[in-house]
C-alpha cells in the first residue's frame, strides 16, 4: 500500500519535471507547444548516449541533459517559435505537430529505432526496507531531485526579480515592454528553462519508461497535456499537485483495477475540464 503510494508519488514527481516546462510555455506564455516531448527525448538521448558511448557517470550526464535541450530550445525559440506567439491556437498546434513529425525521423535516422537504455549506477538501483515497506532507491532519488527542482522553480518564479518580470511580461507584454522589461529576452530564457527541464525529465524518466526511443515525443505528449490541463495552467504549484494526483491515481489504478488501465487519467482530465475548465488548482478567475 505504502509502496504503491510512494511509487505513485515518484511517478508524479517525474511527470512534474517533464511537464513543468510545458506549464511554463503553455500555462504562462499561452503557447501550445506539442513539441515539448521532443525536448524531453533529446535530454533522454543525451544521458543515454553519454553513458553508453562515452562511459560518463549518470549524475554527470544530468546537467548536460538539461543544457543541451535548453540551448536547442533557445535556438528554436529565436528562429521559429517567436513568430507564432500571437498566432491562433490552431496554427500553434499545426506548427508544433510539424516539429514533432520532424523530430522523430531525425532521431530514428541519427540514433536508430531501438530504445536506448540508461543503466543506473549500483547505488541507485535496488530497494531498501523502511519499517517493512520496500522502497526503490531510484524512486527515492527521483522524489528528492524533483522535489528540489519544484522548490527551486517556485522560488524562482515567485521570489526573484526575473520571476516577477516573467509574470508581468505574460500578463501584458506591451505594458511590460513599456516599463523597460526586455520581454523578448525573458521569453527566450523561460523557454530555455522549460526545454531544459523537459530534457532533465526525459533523462530521469529513461529508466522508468524502459529506454528512450524515437516515438517518445508522441507517447508522452498526451500525458504532459493531461498534467497541465488538470493542474491548471497558472503556475508551478498547480502543475505539481496535478502531476502528483495523476501519478498516484495512475499507479494505484493500474495496480488495483488493471482492467481499466490508462482510462483513469483520461477520465480525470475530461471530468476536470467539465467541472473546472481552468484546471483544478488554478487561480479563481483563470484566464
Amino acid at each position: 500500500m505504502l509502496t504503491i503510494l510512494l511509487d505513485g508519488v515518484a511517478y508524479g514527481m517525474l511527470l512534474f519535471v517533464l511537464a513543468s516546462g510545458l506549464s511554463v510555455t503553455l500555462g504562462l506564455m499561452n503557447f501550445i507547444n506539442l513539441a515539448h516531448g521532443a525536448f524531453a527525448m533529446v535530454g533522454g538521448y543525451v544521458t543515454a548516449l553519454l553513458m553508453n558511448r562515452a562511459g560518463a557517470p549518470f549524475l554527470l550526464t544530468l546537467p548536460a541533459a538539461f543544457l543541451i535541450p535548453a540551448i536547442l530550445g533557445v535556438a528554436l525559440e529565436r528562429t521559429l517559435y517567436r513568430r507564432l506567439y500571437g498566432a491562433s491556437p490552431l496554427d500553434q498546434v499545426l506548427f508544433t505537430i510539424g516539429l514533432v513529425l520532424m523530430a522523430m525521423p531525425i532521431a530514428a535516422y541519427l540514433i536508430g529505432d531501438e530504445p536506448q537504455q540508461v543503466h543506473l549506477p549500483a547505488w541507485l538501483s535496488g530497494r531498501i526496507e523502511v519499517h517493512g515497506v520496500g522502497i526503490g532507491v531510484y524512486r527515492l532519488f527521483i522524489i528528492l531531485v524533483c522535489g528540489i527542482i519544484a522548490a527551486a522553480l517556485q522560488t524562482f518564479l515567485v521570489k526573484t526579480r526575473f520571476g516577477a518580470q516573467l509574470r508581468a511580461a505574460v500578463d501584458d507584454a506591451r505594458v511590460a515592454q513599456g516599463l523597460g522589461i526586455n520581454v523578448d529576452r525573458i521569453f527566450a530564457v523561460a523557454f530555455a528553462v522549460g526545454s531544459g527541464l523537459a530534457g532533465l525529465g526525459g533523462a530521469l524518466a529513461a529508466d522508468v519508461v524502459g529506454g528512450i526511443d524515437p516515438s517518445f515525443p508522441v507517447k508522452f505528449l498526451v500525458t504532459f497535456l493531461i498534467v497541465v490541463t488538470v493542474g491548471g495552467s497558472n503556475g508551478i504549484m498547480g502543475a505539481l499537485f496535478g502531476s502528483l494526483l495523476l501519478g498516484v491515481l495512475d499507479v494505484a489504478g493500474k495496480y488495483y483495477v488493471p482492467s481499466i488501465g490508462a482510462f483513469i487519467i483520461y477520465a480525470v482530465m475530461v471530468v476536470t475540464l467539465i467541472v473546472r475548465p481552468q484546471g483544478l488548482f488554478a487561480r479563481g478567475d483563470g484566464r
Binding site: S88, P89, V93, G261, F263, Y266, V270, L273, P277
Partner: peptide, 28 residues
Amino acid sequence: PLLLRGADLTRLMVTLGVSLMLGELANR
C-alpha cells in the same frame, strides 16, 4: 456539451481526451 465551455485550448484537450478514452475502452 463539453465543447460549449472554455477556449480553443480546452476544446483541443477535451476532444483529444474523449478519443483516447474511447480507444482505451476498445482496447479493454
